Amino acid sequence: MNNSSIEKSVYRFYYGDEIKTLNELPGMLSDGLITTDEYDNRIKLYESWLDAEEHNERAWRNSELSKTDYMTTPDGTYGGKLISGTSREQDILDYRAKLRAYNLRDEARPTRPEWYTG
């Protein structure tokens, strides 16, 4: 599995017959397509969606940490090659640090090292 197949969900909503994203919402307000009340309501719905998605993001993050646990041991291997003492060891340690610091709500998912396809 590569990084492109594990992208974070994007908030989408219907406006008439069209599917819109959060990025389009300010323009819709400034263009007069929606009222301030509609805008505020959409933001509340987005916050509610984020609350629900936070659970999914935490599960993904915890899974990524679990999948790389063995690589941090002195005899950990990947693709049949020892990781300890190589640049891959630092790559995994850096990735795990990014996972732990990951803001589940507001940031893009941390990217796996190029060589790690899971």
Score class of each variant (00 low, 15 high):
Met1Glu: 12
Asn2Gly: 14
Asn2His: 13
Ser4Gly: 10
Ser4Ala: 13
Ser5Gly: 12
Ile6Ser: 13
Glu7Thr: 12
Glu7Trp: 03
Glu7Asn: 15
Lys8Val: 03
Lys8Ala: 08
Ser9Asp: 10
Ser9Val: 01
Val10Asn: 10
Val10Gly: 03
Arg12Ile: 05
Phe13Lys: 06
Phe13Leu: 01
Phe13Tyr: 15
Phe13Gly: 04
Tyr14Asp: 14
Tyr14Trp: 11
Tyr14Lys: 15
Tyr15Gln: 11
Tyr15Met: 11
Tyr15Arg: 10
Gly16Ser: 11
Asp17Glu: 14
Asp17Gly: 14
Glu18Lys: 10
Ile19Asp: 00
Ile19Thr: 14
Lys20Ile: 00
Thr21Cys: 01
Leu22Arg: 11
Asn23Lys: 12
Glu24His: 14
Leu25Thr: 06
Leu25Val: 06
Pro26Met: 07
Gly27Phe: 13
Gly27Arg: 14
Gly27Glu: 10
Leu29Phe: 03
Ser30Tyr: 08
Ser30Met: 10
Asp31Lys: 14
Asp31Phe: 12
Gly32Thr: 03
Ile34Thr: 07
Ile34Leu: 04
Asp37Pro: 00
Asp37Asn: 13
Glu38Lys: 07
Glu38Thr: 05
Glu38Ser: 06
Tyr39Cys: 02
Tyr39Arg: 01
Asn41Glu: 15
Arg42Asp: 00
Ile43Ser: 07
Ile43Tyr: 02
Ile43Asp: 04
Leu45Arg: 14
Tyr46Gln: 01
Ser48Tyr: 07
Ser48Gln: 11
Trp49Ser: 12
Asp51Ser: 14
Asp51Thr: 10
Glu54Thr: 14
Glu54Val: 06
His55Arg: 15
Asn56Tyr: 13
Asn56Pro: 00
Glu57Asp: 05
Arg58Leu: 13
Arg61Ala: 09
Asn62Met: 05
Asn62Ile: 00
Glu64Thr: 00
Leu65Arg: 08
Leu65Lys: 08
Leu65Ala: 05
Leu65Gln: 07
Ser66Leu: 12
Ser66Phe: 13
Lys67Tyr: 14
Thr68Asn: 09
Asp69Val: 07
Met71Val: 02
Thr72Arg: 09
Thr72Ala: 07
Thr72Pro: 00
Thr72Leu: 15
Thr73Phe: 10
Thr73Arg: 13
Thr73Ile: 08
Pro74Lys: 12
Pro74Asn: 10
Asp75Phe: 12
Gly76Phe: 06
Gly76Trp: 03
Thr77Gln: 12
Thr77Phe: 03
Tyr78Gln: 04
Tyr78Val: 07
Tyr78Arg: 06
Gly79His: 05
Gly79Val: 01
Gly79Asn: 11
Lys81Phe: 10
Lys81Ser: 15
Leu82Tyr: 02
Ile83Glu: 00
Ile83Met: 04
Ile83Lys: 02
Ile83Gln: 01
Gly85Trp: 02
Arg88Met: 15
Glu89Phe: 12
Glu89Pro: 03
Asp91Arg: 04
Asp91Leu: 09
Asp91Ala: 15
Ile92His: 07
Leu93Ala: 06
Leu93Thr: 02
Leu93Gly: 02
Tyr95Val: 05
Arg96Met: 03
Arg96Lys: 09
Arg96Thr: 00
Arg100Val: 09
Arg100Leu: 11
Ala101Met: 08
Tyr102Lys: 06
Tyr102Gln: 05
Asn103Pro: 00
Asn103Tyr: 05
Leu104Gly: 05
Arg105Val: 05
Glu107Trp: 03
Glu107Ala: 14
Glu107Lys: 11
Arg109Asp: 03
Pro110Asn: 11
Pro110Ser: 02
Thr111His: 10
Thr111Asn: 10
Pro113Arg: 07
Pro113Gln: 08
Glu114Cys: 08
Glu114Phe: 14
Tyr116Leu: 14
Thr117Cys: 10
Thr117Pro: 01
